[in-house]
């Protein structure tokens, strides 16, 4: 198996497929047996680019964008203190930290649960639009944005874990207790959708444009 090699050429242009799972380069001249070619090393199905990557990513990212509204507007936590109930949204929790002077921790939660989901959605939409309209500039920067989205996506689960621990720990019967609010479901769904969006997207499409 030999290949004509030029510099500044993609593997696809040379008729080679790069396995997504193990990174092996596979020559595409073999006719696939069942419609999909399997990697000879790790048996993953391989293709030049992720199948239907753009419409699937659009669907997931728009779902995340819609779910972001109930996630931020509905209460995410309810604190019962001596019979009085206090509902708080994500933003209330952050403001609480800023009012009590804990700026560092307030900033961490603000970044993890407000900025990161917003950045992921805006960033992915920008990348998808750039593929749609074949914008050939700032490719390196868009790749960095995508890799950052991939890396940072999971950190939004922070708030959910905090609520899980709070409701397990702060539970003193009728005196005071902490419960999750309906926004928890929406917020988890936002995180899941945007993580799946980053997984289905194929950054190589950016460079194909």
């Amino acid at each position: 198996m030999t290949t004509e090699f030029h510099s500044r050429q993609t593997a696809m242009a040379a008729g080679l497929m790069c396995c997504h799972d193990c990174g092996k380069l596979v020559t595409a001249d073999k006719t696939p047996e069942h419609g999909v070619l399997a990697c000879p090393r790790c048996d993953a199905s391989i293709h030049y680019r992720n199948i239907n990557a753009v419409p699937r990513t659009w669907a997931l990212i728009l779902t995340a964008a819609i779910l972001l509204f109930p996630a931020n507007l509905l209460p995410i936590m309810r604190v019962d203190f001596l019979g009085s109930q206090e509902h708080s949204t994500i933003m209330d929790g952050i403001l609480y930290f800023f009012h009590s002077g804990e700026y560092g921790i307030g900033l961490i939660i603000f970044i993890a649960s407000v900025l990161v989901p917003l950045f992921k959605i805006i960033g992915m939409i920008l990348i998808l639009l750039s593929i749609r309209f074949k914008w050939k500039t700032w490719l390196r920067h868009k790749t960095i944005i995508f890799r950052f989205i991939q890396f940072v996506g999971r950190w939004s689960m922070l708030d959910i874990f905090v609520i899980a621990l709070m409701s397990a720990l702060v539970d003193f019967g009728t005196f005071t207790s902490t419960q999750a609010g309906p926004a928890a479901t929406y917020f988890t769904a936002v995180v899941m959708c945007s993580m799946f969006a980053a997984m289905t997207f194929d950054p190589r499409l950016l460079w194909d444009a």
């Binding site: 050429q9 993609t10 593997a11 080679l16 380069l25 790749t143 995508f146 950016l206």
Partner: peptide, 10 residues
């Protein structure tokens, strides 16, 4: 040969 997993450069 090897290809970049992110931009497919050979």
């Amino acid at each position: 040969l090897t290809a970049c997993p992110v931009c497919d450069l050979l």
